[in-house]
Write a protein that binds this DNA or RNA. Sequence first.
DNA 1: CCTCTAATTAGCGGTTTCGCTAATTAGCAG
DNA 2: CTGCTAATTAGCGAAACCGCTAATTAGAGG
Lengths: 98, 98
Amino acid sequence: MENSVFKALAHPARRQLLTMLRQGPRLAGGLAAEFEASWPTMSRHLAVLKDADLITAERQGNQILYRVNTSVLEDAASALLGLIGRDTGDDELKDAAE
Amino acid sequence: MENSVFKALAHPARRQLLTMLRQGPRLAGGLAAEFEASWPTMSRHLAVLKDADLITAERQGNQILYRVNTSVLEDAASALLGLIGRDTGDDELKDAAE
DNA sequence: CCTCTAATTAGCGGTTTCGCTAATTAGCAG
DNA sequence: CTGCTAATTAGCGAAACCGCTAATTAGAGG
């Protein structure tokens, strides 16, 4: 479960997608349009992110709206910080997400 | 550069190695001994981590001492937190496409 | 020199990932 | 139903990754 998250984060294009989604939800087409890679390629990157639960998809009529799942991202960052025994910014308690 | 870090983090055994190193420097043999996988396999995992600058190696006579590089780990965590526009405690850091 | 231990490197099959084109599904509108 | 747009799925070849065994380097010591 945690593994798929880090695997999803391993590809630059997918991290780029996440930074794009950081400012708000976006349509698949709009996201794909900003990359050199083909549309199906980007669609698969989105699928990988969704599989890792890093983003959620919501159908809106003809198109699909993607939204970043911040809590999973926070968990990953916490896990990383935990690797060095550093305070995560959240409390020592885990899963205390607002 | 940032890319190799996330790629290195993508494998469970390598994250496990980092958690082991979290409590202090250790010898390659001692680390490898705690895994089911063969010694050469673990040696390569260590090489990947070293390549990503997540750990440093120091020769000590016959053996090799590995040490975690906390700053790189912190940078990665910061990048992740930055993906959700959260304050990291460290300076703002962006993970460009690359 | 030779030998032993610690660790890495070389090379190999098997699996996964990646990016493409082509085909397909899903929804909307006439 | 037909056509159109948005997006995913199928399938393929190229490349990377993973874990193994065997071979090799590096250092300590007789």
